[in-house]
Structure formats: C-alpha cells, structure tokens
Amino acid sequence: MHTERIPPHPDVAALTLQRLLEALVDPVRRSIVEQLYDAPAEVACGGFDLPVGKSTATHHFRVLREAGLIRQYYEGTSRMNTLRRREIDAAFPGLLESVVAADRAERAAAR
C-alpha cells in the first residue's frame, strides 16, 4: 500500500464529540456508518446501497473521513472504506453502537 494513495485522516486524539455528531446528523452518512458497522471487511465506495449519486456520495465519504469516523485507502483503483470502530469506541465508548441502534429503532418505528 503506497502512502501517497492514502488520503489524510485525523488522529484519534484530535477527534471531538461535536465533530463526530455533526458528521452523523445526515441520514446518508449514518447509512454509510451502519453498513460499515455490519460489514465483515472493508467496503469499496461503489459497494454501498445509497440513495444519492456518485459525486454526492463522494462528499459524504469525505465528511466521514475528515470527522475521523472512517478510514479510506486505495486497493487498485477502488477506494476502500472501513469504520474506525476500535478507535472511536476507545475515545467515545458506546457512541457508534448507540447511533446505529437509534437509527434502526427510528426506521422500525416508521414502518
């Protein structure tokens, strides 16, 4: 893996709850986080089920990466995504689990 093919990511020590929550306020970004939360491995940008076009999805991935929620790197020509779950859980215990559970409960109640 070439380091020039890895976009910049914030250090976990620089993460703030406000920045994470601002990134998670958007339902498309929460969907990305939820899909990564359930994924057994990294997921290519094109492997997500999203209700937006490619350029809008790219924006959402960038917001999540810059907030520190996801890590991205290239594998060939695919940009791969992984949730920084261990790092986020260590800094903000229970945050990701709570966000995913609340989003699922909200969707279930709307049915």
Rank of each mutant, 00 (worst) to 15 (best):
S98T: 13
F92W: 02
Y37S: 04
A14K: 11
A39C: 11
R104I: 10
S98R: 15
E106N: 07
R107A: 15
E22I: 07
T3L: 08
A105K: 12
A102L: 10
H59E: 12
T82E: 08
R71I: 07
L83M: 03
P8R: 01
T82R: 06
V25L: 10
E87G: 00
L17N: 07
A105E: 12
A39N: 14
E106Y: 05
I88H: 02
R65F: 03
L50S: 08
L83E: 00
F92M: 04
A13K: 14
P40A: 15
R85V: 03
V100Q: 05
D89N: 12
R79T: 02
T56K: 02
R30N: 12
S55F: 11
R19A: 15
Y74C: 00
L69Q: 03
R29M: 07
R62F: 15
L36E: 04
H59W: 13
A90Y: 06
Y37I: 04
E4W: 11
T3M: 07
A108C: 05
L50G: 08
S78Y: 09
G47W: 08
D103P: 03
E42F: 04
V99Q: 06
A41Y: 13
A110K: 14
E87F: 08
L17D: 07
D11F: 09
V99D: 04
T3G: 02
V52A: 00
Q18L: 12
L36H: 06
Y74H: 00
P27T: 14
V99C: 09
H59Q: 13
P7G: 03
D103N: 14
Q72H: 05
M1W: 07
Y37H: 07
S55A: 12
Q35V: 12
L21M: 14
R111I: 11
E4S: 13
S31M: 08
I6D: 00
G53Q: 13
L15G: 13
T3C: 00
G76F: 07
R29E: 09
G94C: 00
G68M: 05
G47F: 02
G46L: 07
I88G: 03
P51D: 07
A39Y: 12
R107K: 15
R65S: 01
I6H: 01
R111K: 14
E66T: 15
G94F: 00
